[in-house]
Design a protein around this nucleic acid. Sequence first.
DNA 1: CTGAAAGCGCTAACAC
DNA 2: GTGTTAGCGCTTTCAG
Lengths: 342, 342
Amino acid sequence: MPTIKDVAAKAGVSTATVSRVINGEKVREETKEKVIKTIKLLGYRPNQIARSLKTQKTHTIGFVVPDYGQFFMQIAKVVEDILNGYGYSLVVCYSDENPDREKARIRMLTEKQVDGMLVVPTSDEDNYIMELNKRGIPVILIDRMVKDIQTDCVLVDNVNGAYQAVEHLITKGYQRIGVINGRQEVTTGEERYRGYLRVFEDYNLPIDRDIIRFGDFSTESGYTLMKELMSLQNPPEAVFIANCYMTIGAMLAIKEMDIKVPEDVAIVGFDDTELTRLSDPPLTAVVQPVREIGEMAANLLYKRICGDMSDYPKMYRLKATLVVRASTDPGWKADIIEKKGA
Amino acid sequence: MPTIKDVAAKAGVSTATVSRVINGEKVREETKEKVIKTIKLLGYRPNQIARSLKTQKTHTIGFVVPDYGQFFMQIAKVVEDILNGYGYSLVVCYSDENPDREKARIRMLTEKQVDGMLVVPTSDEDNYIMELNKRGIPVILIDRMVKDIQTDCVLVDNVNGAYQAVEHLITKGYQRIGVINGRQEVTTGEERYRGYLRVFEDYNLPIDRDIIRFGDFSTESGYTLMKELMSLQNPPEAVFIANCYMTIGAMLAIKEMDIKVPEDVAIVGFDDTELTRLSDPPLTAVVQPVREIGEMAANLLYKRICGDMSDYPKMYRLKATLVVRASTDPGWKADIIEKKGA
DNA sequence: CTGAAAGCGCTAACAC
DNA sequence: GTGTTAGCGCTTTCAG
């Protein structure tokens, strides 16, 4: 690998000049051409490590997701595209919904000197986040909030999303509406539960604790809890499930128990995947604006990296949409193919 | 941020000593303790960039996947876990099945000076791969091979996988068996097609070009081609679909056309996802040993990074397994829950 | 407009 | 066992 020195020597200029050419600074046209030619000739590529050491910039940004499932990876994809466009590359790593692991990953990213970070926090406490901000590393929270912390974040209105889901069920005439909640230590989980409760309040309906369950967002928990619910003496007529993995688990349970949807129990899930459309029956679901989430987050982060803190702390609250399908509507029929978003 | 110099000064030793302590080299116990105490006191963290500049090692490895779908992300997860264990971190990026983009990502990783790379090539030609190897950057090919190239790779026996699938169909008594192939410029696509053809040869059955289609691995192509097939005057009785995204597309088409599986047409797909189990009906599929693929690849790469080239070039060929479900067997009934692998 | 030179923070000979 | 010192490859004053 040739270095800037080799280029300088071969071109008969100083390393400073070569550096200037590389960085697009003012250099006499003639000199510039000579340098560029030599660079090509030697196949020279600037050493990013050396450059980073000097400039304190790595042009890398980190993204910590709880898991590598569709929802977060779709976001990762749009984030990566946008950031690539700005000349940054993305390091994605997963926390496994585990605050300790999350902290470890963030620490790793910090040591790698990323210029900024996107994180989906696995807990609503603990604020190493502010520490990063203090250290001058911009961080954008995605999807979930951390309490008592003022920082940039891109969120979805989960209360409203859940509300729509449950209200739809009520409108459809379902009475005993159960819920499989996600992790309450995380704002999405808590907010969706809140949305569920609020419908009952607004409609002045009684709440039955028996059919309210708490899972951990995993497929397994969805499976177990759905089995529990449907084994009740008086099982729910409809169930709202607070995320996509639990919905998958719940559907597996239903399949296994030979229960008819929506005749025996209506289902409304959260998040949209191919599965929602292909499952038997296709699922009514609250769908989140994945592309927008990614765009807002990537652009906001870029703005911060560029030093523009003008509207800090900025909070985006995007709206989710209810998509009705057969799992809450026996008469439903797919007439148009819904295109794959990813 | 304190530097090694600050620590040295405060502890009253030389930077060399501090460095030795950090790197676990022999230092008098007394001195070591003093240094460690100062490190803690100052909250010192070694600057990885500086270290990399000096040692020429970044302790980072790159992974280029065609997409962020379940199959590759499951592999990424096991790879990341293993590599993390060895003190390496993983940068995953996607090529979008596009050779140019792939080249760009590999170039980016090279400039980031990764210590090694895992790549799922998007084409069976073009060998910048060897260039990397020559440059001393170990590369392991995953899932797909590059022709005329001798290098480490972890593959699945696709010919055999497809063979099992189609043979199963024949055993079940299906006669007109169609296929939706993947990209033939990629070894998995080509091999699976080869497996399909070989069954016909072995069983001395006629091949009908009409029901052989070529997609590009995408959901869209699966959708379109399945529609084409089923709109034929004489549609196939069974279809083998060469990857999971196309299977999804095909199932969407089937749903839309109101075709019964397996009564009107039997389906066997490739790769296992929750969808295979939840779709209507659950899908017979060739499942690849995801965990093993990741383990073999990560460990082999680590070995290479450590300078052990003993068995180079090593080629692993793992076996795929056929899992039979209702899409080829009307009598099938799920009795045990198949646990989520990821 | 260009060059000389001083580091960025760390490691690794090489001395002592 | 520990210190001195010369870089790793680049950017960036500061002179000229």
